[in-house]
Each structure stands twice: as structure tokens, then as C-alpha cells.
């Protein structure tokens, strides 16, 4: 994501090893930015995939998803850079996604 581009309100992370591809997140997502991926995970499930843009950080996909940790939703804390001290744990880890 380039710095000049408009900042996304949310970021969605899907753990392919945990997702069973039920599709409930796709059904739940208001902006419809989740789709079924083409790849099979190692258990043989086609898993959900984030389109890469358009997430509003609303979190409803997380609630609809039956898996404890298949979805992580990040929300924009402060445009232009929040201080590292106020960013909760996990934010850094997600960035590598």
C-alpha cells in the first residue's frame, strides 16, 4: 500500500489454516470485500480471501465467522500515524500480512 493512496479504514486478516471456507463472512461483509479463494489449505478447504481493499473495520465478519481465530480485523486508529505506544499489541504482526 503506497503512502499517497487513501488510507483504508480497516484491514482484514484471514488465517488460512483455521478457515474452513464456510462462506459466512462473505455473506456477512457489508462492503462485500471477501471472496472465496482459489487455493486449498492443507486440510483441503477452499478458504476465504480478502480482496485487499475496501474493509471498513466494522468487524461483523469476525462475529459471523464460527472459527475462533480465522479472522482478525484491524481498524485504523488514527490516520497519519498513531504513536506506537497507543497501538495495541498485534498491530505490528498484522502488518506483515
Amino acid at each position: 500500500m503506497s503512502e499517497d493512496k487513501k488510507q483504508e479504514r480497516g484491514i482484514l486478516k484471514i488465517d488460512e489454516e483455521e478457515c474452513k471456507g464456510c462462506g459466512l463472512c462473505m455473506e456477512a461483509c457489508p462492503p462485500k470485500v471477501i471472496a472465496m479463494g482459489e487455493r486449498l489449505n492443507r486440510y483441503g478447504y477452499r478458504t476465504a480471501a480478502y480482496a485487499g481493499a475496501g474493509c471498513t473495520g466494522c468487524g461483523i465478519c469476525f462475529l459471523a465467522c464460527p472459527e475462533p481465530g480465522a479472522i482478525t480485523v484491524l481498524r485504523l486508529v488514527k490516520p497519519g500515524g498513531a504513536s506506537a505506544a497507543t497501538a495495541p499489541e498485534g498491530a505490528t504482526a498484522c502488518a506483515s500480512n
Binding site: F62, G69, T72, L74, A82, A84, A87, G90, A91, A95
Partner: peptide, 15 residues
């Protein structure tokens, strides 16, 4: 490692 952009997001919903 962590860029300024990354630090702007926080986990809203997670395990």
C-alpha cells in the same frame, strides 16, 4: 521492521 503506516492500525476483533 514496523513502518509508520503499520502502527496506525489496531486489532478491533481477534481471537
Amino acid at each position: 521492521m514496523s513502518s509508520p503506516v503499520v502502527a496506525e492500525y489496531a486489532v478491533a476483533r481477534g481471537k
